[in-house]
């Protein structure tokens, strides 16, 4: 189990879009663990992250970003500094 917290800006963004409490967003949170995280919500989420941090994901990679941890590591790999 990871103890690293999810950066607050990402946590709030995910909470807004998935319509859950920010406390429910942890690194291991995934499309499996949150009911509202369906394929349309996933697209909304990716678009919101792209808009928020000024990045673009390769469309082929998008389907694989199914956990908060993966989203976070891809953002970091793109050089985004999260607060």
């Amino acid at each position: 189990m990871s103890v690293e917290p999810v950066p607050s800006s990402l946590r709030e963004l995910l909470a807004d879009i998935l319509e859950v409490s920010p406390d429910d967003i942890r690194l291991e949170t995934s499309t499996e663990s949150i009911e509202t995280w369906d394929s349309f919500r996933h697209l909304q989420l990716i678009l919101a992250i792209e808009g928020e941090y000024g990045v673009q994901f390769d469309p082929q990679r998008v389907a694989d970003l199914t956990t908060v941890e993966m989203i976070l590591s891809d953002l970091r790999a793109k050089g985004v500094e999260l607060s």
């Binding site: 709030e12 963004l13 807004d16 879009i17 319509e19 678009l47 919101a48 808009g51 928020e52």
Partner: peptide, 12 residues
């Protein structure tokens, strides 16, 4: 704010 997340929040 033009952030998508603010629009999502407002709309909800």
């Amino acid at each position: 704010s033009t952030r998508p997340t603010d629009t999502m929040f407002s709309s909800t």
